[in-house]
Amino acid sequence: MEITKNSIIGDVLDQHPETAQIFLSIGMHCLGCPASRGETIEEACMVHGADADALVEAVNAAVK
């Protein structure tokens, strides 16, 4: 699974639950919320004021 800014957070977490800590570390504490699980990484980063490119890089590094 290639993880990009357009990846759905719920899909990433289902395939790679170990990445939850990365999302939590940048303030995405709503990972259990059904709405957040349907957002793309880019959408969630916009809401949380986070850098989507940096998050995608960190998530991809964690799953390799």
Rank of each mutant, 00 (worst) to 15 (best):
Gly49Arg: 02
Glu57Trp: 00
Ala62Gln: 14
Leu55Arg: 08
Ala35Arg: 09
Ser36Tyr: 11
Ala44Gln: 13
His16Cys: 07
Gly49Ser: 11
Met28Thr: 00
Cys45Ala: 11
Val12Trp: 15
Val56His: 09
Ala62Ser: 14
Cys45Asp: 07
Leu24Asp: 01
Val59Lys: 10
Glu39Tyr: 04
Ala50Gly: 14
His16Gly: 03
Thr19Gln: 08
Asp14Thr: 12
Asp51Ile: 13
Arg37Met: 14
Glu2Gly: 00
Ala35Cys: 03
Ser7Glu: 12
Asp11Tyr: 06
Leu24Trp: 02
Gly32Asp: 14
Met46Gly: 01
Ala54Ile: 02
Asn60Phe: 09
Thr4Gly: 00
Val12Leu: 15
Ile26Cys: 13
Thr19Asp: 14
Ile8Val: 09
Asp14Tyr: 05
Leu55Ile: 14
Gly32Met: 12
Thr4Phe: 01
Leu13Phe: 09
His29Arg: 13
Val47Thr: 09
Asn6Asp: 06
Pro34Phe: 03
Asn6Gly: 01
Glu18Cys: 12
Glu42Trp: 04
Met28Arg: 03
Leu31Tyr: 08
Val12Ala: 12
Val47Gln: 07
Ala61Gly: 10
Leu55Asp: 10
Leu13Met: 09
Cys45Thr: 02
Ala61Asn: 09
Ser7Val: 00
Ala54Ser: 09
Ala44Lys: 08
Glu2Thr: 04
Pro34Ala: 02
Asp11Asn: 08
Asp53Ile: 07
Cys33Leu: 00
Val63Ala: 01
Thr40Cys: 01
Val59Phe: 14
Ile22Gly: 07
Thr19Arg: 11
Asn6Ala: 09
Gly32Ala: 13
